[in-house]
Design a binder for these strands. Sequence first.
RNA 1: GCCGGGGUGGCGAAAUCGGCAGACGCAGCGCACUCAAAAUGCGCCGGGCGUGAGCCCGUGCGGGUUCGAGUCCCGCCCCCGGCACCA
Length: 818
Amino acid sequence: MTTEAKTDPGRYQPAEFEARWRERWERDGINRTPDHVPGRENRYQLTMLPYPSGDLHVGHWWAMAPSDALARFYRMRGYNVMFPMGFDAFGLPAENAAIKGGRHPRDWTDANVERMRGQLRAMGAMFDWDREVDSSQPDYYRWTQWWFLQLFHRGLAYRKDALANWCPSCNTTLANEQVVDGRCERCDTEVVQRQMEQWFFRITQYADELLANDDLDWPEHVKVMQRNWIGRSEGAEFTMRVQGQDGVEFRVYTTRPDTAFGMTFAVLAPEHPLVETITTPEQREAVREFVERVRRATEIERLSTEGPVEKRGVFTGAHAINPFNGQPVPIYLADYVLTSYGTGAIMAVPGQDQRDWDFAKAYDLPIVRTVQPPADWPDEAYTGDGPAINSQWLDGLHKADAIQRAIQWLEGQGIGERKVNYRLRDWLISRQRYWGAPIPILYCERDGVVPVPEHDLPVELPYDVQFLPTGQSPLALSEEFVNATCPRCQGPARRETDTMDTFMCSSWYFMRYVDPQNPEAPFSSAAAQAWLPVDQYTGGSEHATMHLLYARFFYKVARDMGLVPGDEPFTRYYSQGQILGPDGRRMSKSRGNVVAPDDQVERWGADTFRAYLMFLGPWDQGGPYDVDGIVGVFRWLSRVWAVVTDPPALVDAPDAARDLRITTHSALKKVGEDYDAKRFNTAIAAMMELTNALQRLRDQGQADRATWYEAVRLLLLMAAPACPHIAEELWERVGGTYSVHQQSWPDFDPALTVRDTVEIAAQVNGKVRARILVPAEASEEAAREAALADEHLASQVTGKQVVRVVYVPGRLVNFVVK
RNA sequence: GCCGGGGUGGCGAAAUCGGCAGACGCAGCGCACUCAAAAUGCGCCGGGCGUGAGCCCGUGCGGGUUCGAGUCCCGCCCCCGGCACCA
């Protein structure tokens, strides 16, 4: 005897068929994308690849499910769409797990990749798994190392002893891009400065080209973020002599050479190499103390605008000559001048610069205005335009002209010239960690820095190492790894033990997808020509000044090497918003507001979960995940199931069918336009409306056979990109040929997107007084009469003078009366 | 401070070449079906006044343009994201 409840065969039960269809698609290989398909244009749709943390979270679904719908839509539109997936598998969490005494990063990562592959499959996305990449596998990082060598040979990779951002918690250096508000982007620990030998990529060489992003079809805010980050500024650099010390001079950078006559002091960064040289004996102790204090200060303290300003500088006792007027000015050190920008030294013009103004006030230094401020200007620096004053031969000139004249003068004197500076710094790629691609460099006592020959790649990570948080790469502790032979002199050499920033792996992964198994090259030229650049990239905008900038840099280098077509990697980029926890805050385990996608899928099915994420709101907006709302989408799909599997009585009555046809074709038009514009929420809403219309007909008990089937088949085709499983299942049940995902996107009939009779508003002085039914093509005369036939409206018009009538066909008729 | 985006029902949101504000959905209320519940279906669902027909108000705030403004213009307020001692 069984007490189990019998399942109702007529009910929508996704668990009964979703997995089955996924297996079938995989078996049939319908998602494989050859490089060329006759009659189909290639289209490369890309969504950012995940880090294999071990669990797919809602954010991944939020990013990938709509992206998949888009890829599917374009496939139906006739393109040969490549939609690949992979794993950005190097990085700290794996290594931290090892340090905590867990598993080896290799094993930890492999297990996570395995698990996440399964979770990604449950999404039902059209990923082409034949193209999967895993950046931690030797056959991938071999080519990451190859890229390093190319950059090295092109003079774009160099080694420098410099102050570097150091995260004391991650025990590694960080690129500038990975320091957010003075803290580590990963772990939020305060970053300190450390003097170290590090490898850098010369991304600044491409600064101007990276800045020129206007024409990219990218969200404006992301382009602006990149422009701000690169931060181009135009000005001049010139030499200042130190008074009384022959041959001792320094360079200053300014964007306002026109104000130089107002220079009343000069400032060097505390780390400036000349500090020792110029400091007078009386000031030595004070300077030493100040430099020491700055050295100890963290970046946060240093950049803070808080705090008493007078503690922030010290007089060196030396003076420099202002070349413009020959006057000596005192040289100070101050922490607001940064060694890493410009020349690390400035001319201070308090009259036209607020920082200089504040400093001058605090140290009781003179202030000379060299630009005439407006009459009511308060007691502060004036940075606006105006005629030059107190500036000898510049007097009377306005800003732009005065700047040009000053630069010409500097050039004429041979002491300075025009100069462009960038806020962007070179990309520091060394990481003192194990779980990354080793930098393919050897240090030989005789030959110095020697690149590993290409045929010796990959430089493989040894498996057997000790994971200790020493602040040195664990590779340094591995004798077997460190000791090598110099390829030039065959003498003993030492391997570089730092690994590369994982952003390096992700800077070119989209190029590897085009030819992922190639053992001879990162990819073939033919494959690159077939697929690159990426037609549509989607991902989070938190990568605006990291991944997206690095990838553009890499692509430009690849272009210069003749490897890829075009100048930009991502023709179109779209950044989805961020999905938040139900409480409206970022999902995190510690807050306990994490929604597990696996649970949602188990409860509602993959289609419902996908469609609900698309239905939540505009994709670029993001927002809280409302756990309760999903039932609405499930109900919708249940209604789709019901109308398809249990139709009304079907008869031949084509005359009565026009209304449904118009509803269907209007929906088809709208859904197609919405998918194309990534307005998934309104696309789903339009499909719901069509479903509701079918439901009403079903309740009425009867429908025209041909029209009904047209509506049902079109609905399933429309739903296929968003809800691939139920679309396939029902498509089969209505006798469609397999696979629904290989069907063409249907054309709507424009004649069937307008109704014959429309309800329009009848207004008096712009206020709606009635709603009337008129033929869609009604003349103004007819519309006016129809409106006046309405008793209520007529009563508002009678006895008054009609000054004017405004008629907007299909919308309204408005009587303007006095 | 500068730059970008945004403020619309109880909630997520629709509607911007100026043309019926609130499509679609959640929650809520009522009804049908049911012994009951669930599920499902139907109806209502911005606020105020009115028995009703209907009237008035309403898209962050204050002005303006217009026959007509969520949408355009001027001046503000607030929220989110980015940058911020870069000379």
